[in-house]
Amino acid sequence: MDTGNSQQEQHQRALIQRICERDQSALELLYHNYYPRLTRFIGRYTWRDELIAEVVNDVMFTVWEKAETYNHQCQLSTWIFGIAYNKARQALRNINQYSEDSLEDIALDSMLGIQDSGLKQLEQQDLLESAFKVLSPDQRAVLELTYFQGLHYSEIAELMQCPENTVKTRMHYARKALSIELKQHADTFLNE
């Protein structure tokens, strides 16, 4: 992502200014700039390829409509990914595929001290890929925003509009769920 890249951020903010002035060519530039990252994020969040194109266009349509409401208090990318998160979440709700993971919001304090054996069995990419399916959309979002988009947890909390500890908790549960899933795969493989 563009953290630390002030030149790119300034360029994108100039694009937003032009979008406020209803310049469609500026929107097209911003669209091309964000298209790979948005398709990636929405695809990983929803785990449904057929939703990606529609949600990306919903996001950029909202950027076009709401550009004047961007207050420059956060990075532009955080603002746009926040819209993407909400649109993707809404899309999943609309097809009745999404349910909140109540475990995710358990207070961080109640979980301290929990450790596990880790991801030692991680050897094959496709194994992990299948393991990702067991995660909730919000857990996948935290993983994706951390390791693919490179965001700090405070930025993720701002984007997902939740407390910072919730982000940490989601990451922790994602790690545990992946560990358990991969261990089961490994046990099955060894018993065959």
Binding site: Y31, Y35, T39, I52, A53, L119, E129, F132, L143, Y147
Partner: peptide, 26 residues
Amino acid sequence: NLRQLANAVQHSPSAEVAAPTLAFAQ
């Protein structure tokens, strides 16, 4: 473990989607 996980996420495939030019036309 987390470094392996980060590496796996970064190398996980993205979905194949329409070209941005076509998508922007819509």
